[in-house]
Write a protein that binds this DNA or RNA. Sequence first.
DNA 1: TGAGTATATAAGTATATTATTATATACTTA
DNA 2: TAAGTATATAATAATATACTTATATACTCA
Lengths: 116, 116
Amino acid sequence: MLKTNEVMDVEKVAMTLKLLGDKTRLIMVKLLDSHDCCVCEFVEIFKTSQPSISQHLRKLRDVGLVKEERRGQWIFYSLNKDNSYYCFVQQVLGQLPSQDHKLKELEEQGTRITCC
Amino acid sequence: MLKTNEVMDVEKVAMTLKLLGDKTRLIMVKLLDSHDCCVCEFVEIFKTSQPSISQHLRKLRDVGLVKEERRGQWIFYSLNKDNSYYCFVQQVLGQLPSQDHKLKELEEQGTRITCC
DNA sequence: TGAGTATATAAGTATATTATTATATACTTA
DNA sequence: TAAGTATATAATAATATACTTATATACTCA
């Protein structure tokens, strides 16, 4: 894993920023920075279709920013700490306000998944 | 100007990241972080058309990330330090390797503009 | 003032991105 | 094993983006 200040490939940084440059994905990644989440939680949070969420997650997964893990019926996503640009992403996310209130809302609604 | 850790609008952060998520613009902004540059220098550096460069600069200008200043025949661009997201952008750029070698090449070629 | 240089903008085209709809896969549980 | 739930993928349509070509504007200097 690259440490901050080690040499980074500008092209890959641009690609990472482009991925984060979408409101839905940015909030997703920010949420994942503090909690693993499953697909249906994102569907609920973003009030959008399940395929749309899956496609965003796929993009993040394709570049190795997130990883998936099945837990029973659900597939949970988490940040991939082994990714070369994990530290870089952390620095960016660190400047963003927490989005955890969105998860709180799910808990209040009773739609937060806490299996396993 | 927002300090890092003050509340930022996620939507605007996403928009900023999207703008930086283009290799040409990312390098432009990184270069501007250390030196003002004029349009024709960018044209030379990126080996692309002048309108293409102008259009990238316009996008950056439209959100207030950069500002322009005429100096004689040339228009010089610089980072807009008054922008609310200047600090945020600084943090991102700080993690990128310097791109100043591109300006060095111009100097060696004799195509660096140093008017005024 | 006219020619040359620097830059911006408009229009058109090619490509990329995002969301939707339809469908397939995989797991759970009665 | 059948029905229900969760997720992924494929195909398509709508929209956004980036580059090119053509043209307009503004400055400089002979």
